[in-house]
Amino acid sequence: MKNDNEAIRAEGIVKRFGDLTVLRGVSLAVKRGEVVCIMGPSGSGKSTLLRCLNWLSPPTEGTVWLAGEVLGTQETPNGTRVPLPDSKLRRQRSRIGMVFQSFNLWPHRTAIGNVMEGPMIVSGITKSEARRLATEILTRVGLTEKADVYPAKLSGGQQQRVAIARALAMQPEIILFDEPTSALDPELVGEVLDVMKSLATQEITMIVVTHEVGFAKDAADRILFMDEGLIVEEGSPSEFLENPKEERSRQFLERYLN
């Protein structure tokens, strides 16, 4: 399983909610610096997969490795696997960033406050160091002048860029994006995608659930197509977007390309 070049690997991920099986055995591996886009119809399990990958919602079956290290569980001396103690799980989670469709900024903290929170409270660096780091990261997402503004006074695009900065501030090994632009007005989508494209060129490992075909074409190394809880097709952007093999992919793309 050990592969130095691998940021994250998942094998046989099954997720059930009661009687409902949402993921039916998903496996994937993402190399360091790789950008993988996940597409698929609504309800196919894309969000659920991302939430399994950072153990926000632990899978029912299957294993996830973060840089070769098993996520969320540990082996006991007698060979069974048990949930990892909370403190260790938290340390693993801090290595995986997540950007949500609905931003989820903390409304009682300013833009910079949101970005500083992780380094200060989770990593335990001093406030002044955290401020310096956060300022630098806000510059990277083009929001230097909005540092002291509360989220409610920011546009959706700006909020999402702050959320990206918040994830970046933990210096994660990989960032998961769950439809980062689908809650945005069309004219605000571009500024967020531009930030994400610049991250893609900076060798940041990303898994992006998105229906933005343009972004996938420009930034992705690989596209995974999900349907009914399985990855049904996988390929380079040009292969997948121009010449999908599966009928389901073709139908899906027809809807989104037009």
Binding site: N54, L56, D86, S87, R90, R91, Q92, R93, S94, R95, I96, G97, M98, F100, S102, N104, L105, W106, E117, G118, I121, V122, A163, R166, A167, M170
Partner: peptide, 14 residues
């Protein structure tokens, strides 16, 4: 909102 808690969990906050 639950999302605010998930955001905290995702950065590893206790």
């Amino acid at each position: 909102p639950v999302g605010h808690l998930e955001a905290a969990a995702s950065i590893g906050m206790s």
